[in-house]
Amino acid sequence: MTLVLDQRRPASRALALARKVNVAVIVFLVLYLAIGLLQPTYFEPAGLMNFLRRAAPLAILSAGQLFVLASGGFDLSVGSLITLTVIGGSMLTANDPSRTWWAIAALYGVGLAVGLINGAVVAFLKTPSIIATLGTLLSVNGAAMMWSGGAPRGYLPDNFRMFGRLVLHDVPIVKIFPIAIAVLAVCGALAYWGFHGAVFGRRILAVGDNPRAAELSGVRVRSVRIGVFVISALAAVTAGIMLGGFGGVSVDVGLGLELQSIAACVVGGVQLMGGRGSVTGAIAGALTLFALFTLLTLLGLPQPLKETAQGLILIAAVALGAWRRRRAV
């Protein structure tokens, strides 16, 4: 491949390189440029760091959703799991900072259980994941409301909120460095290793592409299915812990995030019903979506129109993918 490329003119070599870059990365850069032109503070290091901090939970959630989407499923329960994480965090800590670590461990336990249930229902009861996780969405939401008595209030302890809120100052070059970006980097690296480095990632793509063929070549399809739902649920708990640091405790923290994470993946070139996707794409898609929301807010559009824009993007991205695939055949 490189041999062939080397014989071409430099211009076409650059073009070939550009083709390898995920489209979402380019769209994100264009959108961010537009944001910066409207609000120059976004061009300063602190502005960029703050943008990344606020986009981090969605990026982590999308990286988790990628695993499920690539295996051919959907995880619609992540939004309600985020709500449960934030509400559960406030109930478990009860404003006592010394309970934070224990509470976080318990919340990951809850996430693990939800992921195992989702995976087991899909793998063993053969219920389509869209129905199974919609059912989990209802149940988990109900559980969160039951736990808090329907009207949660207040804030989480400061050391719990650290992951979303703490910002280190006087850092060289970038000036400020939010912890959230470090969490995103760690999660992104883990996801990259799991999806592109480990054999597990190959198996996910094989299952998503053709489960029967994967099974015949020795992949344990059920374990893979359960694994991807557990990963997605753990990503949701992580995103929930970070979002808990952003604002107060409320019943609608996670509202709509399941769709945003799917939309982010679709924008990042992940193929629905499985078989294709990348961590870079999922995270770039999340940043693109978040940049778009920021841009719409800067332009003064009413908040609900975010949903409309998201719907349009979702349809456009999938329609474009379908068109390109039709043309390729």
Partner: peptide
């Protein structure tokens, strides 16, 4: 040839956004 889940999800979001705005 947009996946039916995504197409109707997207249309639903568009409707809800316009309505809530």
């Amino acid at each position: 040839q947009v996946n039916s889940l995504i197409a109707t999800l997207g249309v639903g979001l568009i409707l809800q956004g316009l309505l809530s705005a």
